[in-house]
Amino acid sequence: MSSEPNAYASHPPRMREATILDKVVANGGVMSIALFFIVCCLFFSVTTDAFLTAPNLLNVIRQSAPLLIVAAAMTFVITTGGIDLSVGSVLALTATLSAAALQAGVPWPLAILLMLLLGGVIGVIQGYFIAYERIPAFIVTLAGLSVIRGFALLITGGYSIPIEPTSPFVALGRAWILGIPAPALIAIVILAVAYIAFNETHFGRYVTGVGANAEATRRAGVNTRSVILWVYVLSGTAAAAAGVILSARLGSGSSNAGQGFELDVIAAVVLGGTSLFGGRGSLTGTILGALTVAVLANGLILSHLSPFFTPIVTGFIILVAIWLNFRLFRGGAKGR
């Protein structure tokens, strides 16, 4: 038998360190939404005069603050492989209750605190059924969507409750601090905290772990149930904060607020490349996703097109962005 020395001769290693291109492909979800975001911004900048002005851009952020805040929390939920359909209802309930509380003479800081607490408690209840009773998140929060909206309607009788415009509470939605609208400022702070929590803390790591392989994470000694419970506490509290900000901005609490809000939030998160199957999430993507949805709505109005085009265009973009993930950035969307 002849040996084949050449076949065994040294050759360059087959594995190499990740290059920039690898990283771009691995973050395909974020890249495709970034592309859409830039294209949208460029398009409206060219076609309308009003879009690319500081007041308009700040207004976009101000209006999309509730969306950004809840989408940040929803990124945690969806990364664990769960979903929270009740956020729109929680928003409506806290919007009406904060208006009702102010009308009843509750001091405004206490009213805000109570609303955040209420959102957290709703999260604990839903999270308990999901994490400890193992009922699918879709079902638990679908029930929550119905029940919580029902409470909001019951309390208000379907009317909206006005908030005294002189109350310092409305500043939360209307004030400008250092040239930035207060809701935008709150959203930016929450997004920064969420980004750090998601990427740099143990909790964020375990959220990804639970979504990627819950059993492996449990075997590694992580209390996966408490991680799951906490993400719903986060989304409940975030939805409550959004409700407070919305009622403060509008100057009234309406039980019909946030109809379909949960779908906008989920759309923003999914647009950002977070996988509905769990284990793969990106807060950068979520921010870009939420802003893309907001810029579209704003830009279409500025273009003097019917605002009813917004859902149509948003829907198409969701489909195309996800399709791009699967095709163009196949590496990053492996098996998903």
Binding site: R205, T208, T217, G221, G279
Partner: peptide, 20 residues
């Protein structure tokens, strides 16, 4: 194997006992 696919190599090695 009990590995988390979407977490990096070091993250998997330290899962559940990450240095603080």
């Amino acid at each position: 194997l009990a590995l988390c696919d979407t977490i990096d190599v070091a993250g998997n090695l330290f899962l559940g006992r990450e240095p603080k």
